[in-house]
Simulated scan of single mutants.
Amino acid sequence: MTAADALKVAFSPCPNDTFVFHAWTHGLVVPGPAAPEVTFADIDITNGMAERGELDLLKISFAALPWVLDEYTLLPCGGALGRGCGPLVLTGPGSSTDPAELAGKTVAVPSERSTAYLLFRLWAAEAVPGGLGEIVVMPFHEIMPAVRDGKVDAGLVIHEARFTYQQYGLHSLADMGEAWEAATGLPIPLGAIIARRSLGQERLRELAAALRASVEHAWAHPEDSRDYVLAHAQEMDPAVADQHIALYVNEFSADLGEDGYAAVHGLLDRAAAAGLLPAVPPGALAFR
Rank of each mutant, 00 (worst) to 15 (best):
R83N: 04
D98A: 15
P129E: 02
P93Q: 13
R121V: 04
P87H: 10
V147A: 11
F120I: 02
A125Y: 06
I135S: 03
A116H: 13
F140D: 13
L118Q: 10
A125K: 12
Y117M: 04
I135H: 03
V107P: 03
A154K: 05
L88E: 10
D98S: 12
L81E: 13
V89P: 07
F140I: 12
G150Y: 13
A125C: 09
V107M: 01
K105P: 09
E142Y: 14
D98R: 12
P99V: 06
G133L: 08
E134P: 03
F140M: 14
K151Q: 15
G133I: 07
V128Y: 00
G92E: 08
E101F: 14
D149E: 15
F120W: 10
G84C: 06
A125G: 10
G92A: 13
I135A: 04
L119I: 02
P110Y: 06
V152G: 11
V107K: 03
A80W: 10
A80C: 13
G104V: 08
P139N: 01
L118K: 09
S111F: 06
R148W: 15
R121F: 05
C85V: 15
T97F: 12
P129K: 06
A154W: 00
L122V: 04
A125R: 15
K105Q: 14
P110Q: 07
L81K: 04
T97V: 11
R83S: 08
A80G: 08
I143G: 10
E126K: 11
S114G: 06
E126W: 11
K151I: 08
A100Y: 00
K151W: 12
P110M: 06
E101L: 05
E126Q: 13
R83Y: 13
Y117G: 00
I135K: 00
E142C: 09
S114W: 00
L132Y: 01
D98V: 13
K151M: 13
L90S: 08
R121P: 05
L102C: 00
E142Q: 15
A124E: 01
L132E: 01
P93N: 06
G131S: 02
